[in-house]
Amino acid sequence: MMRVGILAVQGAFAEHAACTEKLGAAYVLLRKPEDAAGIDHLILPGGESTTQRKLLHDTGLFSPLQEKIKAGIPVLATCAGLILLAKEVSGGEGCFSVLPVKVQRNAYGRQLGSFSAVGDVGDISGYPMRFIRAPYVTEVLSDAVQVLNETDGRITAVRYQDLTALSFHPELTDDLRIHREFLGL
């Protein structure tokens, strides 16, 4: 039985939980280190990356999650999650620093710069993308990084080994294709 861990210290974790539940997968909300035992998938939701990073350390969740990520469990990171995974962050600090990309925080400016678009994400075509004070990838630091989406010439979705990281929010749409692909269903 699959066990999806969803980081639940701040942000839109309930939306990811709803998507996971709709697909019939069991999930656990991660609030303290013990919660991470036995998870085989990890979702890092949108929210404020500075808040999440601080709480990852304060709660003690950082170490067990870092071990899981290093052990190679599949990770789906959205928006703030992309920042937490990135090796380099402009306008902020990294956290797990495992994804070889450089990311710009608040890359589209303030809330007036938030927008939506429709585009292909890897093999998934015509996916509705919600960008909320979003970051994007300014530089790919390894040939092993696969670019899954570019919107207006900006890289907004990447895959590297078992890490999938997106600037936008699949959990805010009714389209479950990204979650389904991530969970291998």
């Binding site: 639940a8 942000g11 309930a14 949108g46 929210g47 404020e48 808040t51 938030s114 919600r130």
Partner: peptide
């Protein structure tokens, strides 16, 4: 409305 969703739990 979605920006407010990102502030949840904060």
């Amino acid at each position: 409305k979605e920006l407010a969703q990102m502030l949840k739990g904060g």
